[in-house]
Computed example of a mutant assay.
Amino acid sequence: MPELPEVETTRRGIATVMPGQALRALNVFEPRLRWPVPADLPDRVKNQVVRACERRGKYLLITFDHGVMIVHLGMSGSLRRALPDEPAKKHDHVEWRFDDARFLLHDPRRFGAVLWHDLADGPVLAHPLLAKLGIEPFDDAFTAQYLFNGLRGRTQNIKQALLGGDIVVGVGNIYASEALFRARINPRIKAGSLSLARAERLWTSIKSTLSDALTSGGSTLRDYVNATGTPGSYFEIHAAVYDRAGQPCRMCQTPIKRIVQGQRATYYCPSCQRR
């Protein structure tokens, strides 16, 4: 699934083009995404000027004067810039067409979303999909103490606590495994058992892992590409454990182990990340 670095990389890409431009047409080729694309959405935004391209968690927020388009890339989707006459590919479901640019939402599994929040309904951050999200990992308010306080009393394993997104957003399955490895924390331990010192290590690792991923443009897993159609390079440069089951740990040469937690694959080094 595209995680925070991939979504932020996409946001930065569209933010260099969309703001200040009138959206001449929103063409919906397949409305049956995770939630149906509102039938009246093309008419709502036709010839309306995009004011900003923002992000909350894994949601892209394309802002107009009268509302916000909420876009999610789903499990394996991407939002890429296309050439003016480039034919839409299979699984290209929604097109944003401007005077000098067009973007296509590619979503093979149709788990993504293109929704509308009207300004008359209040702040977009109060939308049900956004209201309960945790703090952003690069927010100044996200501190080691904040993380420690959020984990206290939790009996679920630390990996699942990170994936929940109600403490901090954006630490999805891929980067949770990587951050836990950097912090030398076993993914199976109870979240509430972390000491403040270990929470500080995890806090540092979360920020550094996501920062490295942003610098390299996200991952190259599956068919993720950024807004320019370019794949990221995180896994070519940084990946220590994710998707490396059976391969030697880069630190101690112990074979990387793969387990399943909450129906998601977890990778860790049994030597570096002892319980």
Rank of each mutant, 00 (worst) to 15 (best):
M1N: 04
P2L: 13
L4M: 12
V7N: 10
E8A: 12
R12I: 03
I14H: 08
T16E: 15
M18T: 08
A25Y: 04
L26A: 08
L26S: 05
E30M: 02
R32G: 07
R34H: 11
W35Q: 12
P36L: 11
P38G: 08
L41C: 10
L41G: 09
D43P: 00
D43I: 04
Q48H: 14
V49P: 02
R51T: 11
G57Y: 04
L60C: 11
L61S: 09
D65L: 12
M69W: 02
H72M: 10
G74D: 08
M75V: 04
M75T: 03
L79K: 11
R80E: 10
R81F: 01
R81D: 07
P84D: 04
D85M: 01
K90Y: 08
H91E: 08
V94G: 12
V94L: 06
E95N: 09
F98P: 00
L104S: 08
P108Y: 14
F111W: 06
W116K: 12
L119D: 14
D121T: 04
P123Q: 13
P123I: 06
A126N: 14
A126M: 12
P128H: 11
A131R: 15
K132E: 14
K132V: 00
I135Y: 00
I135H: 03
D140E: 13
F142L: 03
F142H: 01
L147C: 07
L147I: 02
F148P: 00
N149R: 11
G150Q: 01
G150A: 05
G153P: 02
R154S: 10
T155Y: 02
N157T: 06
K159V: 04
L162K: 06
G165Y: 00
V171L: 14
V171D: 00
S177L: 05
E178V: 05
R182A: 15
A183N: 04
R184T: 06
I185E: 01
I189W: 07
R198C: 01
T204K: 15
S205I: 02
T209P: 02
L210P: 00
D212Q: 14
G218L: 04
G218T: 09
D223Y: 09
D223I: 06
V225T: 13
A227L: 08
A227G: 14
P231L: 03
E236P: 02
A239P: 05
V241N: 08
R244G: 08
A245Y: 05
A245N: 13
G246D: 14
Q247W: 05
C249Y: 06
C252F: 10
T254C: 06
I256R: 10
K257V: 09
R258Y: 01
R264W: 07
Y268I: 06
R275S: 14
